[in-house]
Design a protein around this nucleic acid. Structure first.
Lengths: 208, 208
DNA sequence: AATTAAATCAAACGACCGTTTAAATTTCAC
DNA sequence: GTGAAATTTAAACGGTCGTTTGATTTAATT
């Protein structure tokens, strides 16, 4: 799908505003104003407000299955190193795209939205790559056996999403008000990754 | 704050609909219809739709600090047992009130809502009780020292919220479609609690 | 029983909404 | 340069929204 400059501007503006205010509290007039276009352009280019949000999801749900597969198949690294890479890449990907991921969180809370099936399939693919990797590690004796991988992935996603969506609360709780937005983001990426790596290693590895 | 039967009916209906559809996609006509009252009653009893949602938060944010304090101060139990009780009570509390907690999640995503300060204070209080407990356990040698308690609490909250908000996706991923809603809820409470207990024990305890 | 206060109602208000319309303008292809 | 196609525009449409209004009904008080 090729978009022209106007369409891209609309998509970006919509993504930002939907993330901030949600779908229903964002009007096409808001989006058009932010994008510098006339309001009829939304319908002209995308057909409807509903199809606009679907287009954002379609554009953004770049399946990250390929990245995952590559990361977890890198035999130059140990199983632990690959697990650590998985966590780092995941956390950085979420934290570096706050708008889209806030939209994802809203979509997941909202039971009646058209992209739910797309999201489900996307998550299922990712999960199956991770599960295959953990299983392989278990069979080869690198990881412990009694670990619920789906719960583990839920903790990865849930923790990261929660930090991202409540980062200003977190900032206040940690007395980090002096940090700029990009400093805070980098701090959160590192600390969240480290925390999650510690958690997963603690349950997957045999104590050294 | 004492509410009459009509007001309670409005509060319940509003909570359910705000949880399902969000504040902006729920109209006062929807709420009035669900509650069996005339739409003017919303403004009459609560002043506005905005004040209605605030009233729900005020009513529901029963500070759980007292429950926490009691659970974590129960000296008839070991430190580990108290940690386990904390997890179980937290998870059950969230999972048993899906409507209110979906509203909480939405409120947290939404940066510009009047109750954010209330939520922040509420979370801060709870966090400080937990941190005091973990610190005490560390000082007495029951828990390991290098654990980020705020991150731990974030994992507790993030994981539980994520399961709750994506429970139908989770149900499908786990091939549990045959379960009724209440069976699924109970399954999730138990499995989430066990998973989180395993995680926290793995990072807090010295390997036996 | 009469009066006052509270609750309820249907209708209305002014605002906002997403989408459409028809005309105007711009761009493209020949 | 011309005509067709695409894009853009301002206005309009029909609908929904939260809140208010004033009349009516019900409940409480004297």
């Amino acid at each position: 799908m090729e978009y022209n400059q106007k369409q891209l501007s609309i998509l970006e503006s919509a993504e930002k505003l939907f993330a901030l205010h949600g779908f229903h509290a964002t009007s096409v007039r808001d989006i058009a104003h932010e994008a510098g276009v006339n309001i009829a352009m939304i319908s002209y280019y995308f057909g409807s407000k509903e199809k606009l949000i679907e287009s954002i999801f379609l554009k953004r749900i770049i399946t990250w299955k390929a990245t995952l597969t590559e990361t977890l198949a890198d035999t130059s690294k140990s199983y632990v190193e690959r697990l650590e890479s998985l966590v780092e890449r995941f956390v950085r990907r979420i934290m570096s795209n706050p708008c889209f991921n806030l939209m994802m969180m809203r979509a997941q809370i909202q039971a009646d939205i058209a992209v739910n099936e797309l999201i489900h399939e996307n998550k299922k693919e990712a999960y199956e790559v991770i599960r295959a990797f953990i299983s392989e590690g278990q069979e080869k004796g690198h990881f412990k056996k009694n670990v619920d991988v789906l719960m583990m992935v839920t903790t990865l996603t849930g923790t990261t999403n929660h930090i991202m969506s409540t980062r200003h609360h977190f900032q206040r709780m940690s007395n980090l008000e002096h940090l700029t937005d990009s400093e805070l983001q980098e701090y959160l990426i590192i600390h969240t990754s480290n925390h999650l790596k510690n958690l997963f290693k603690a349950i997957l590895l045999h104590e050294a």
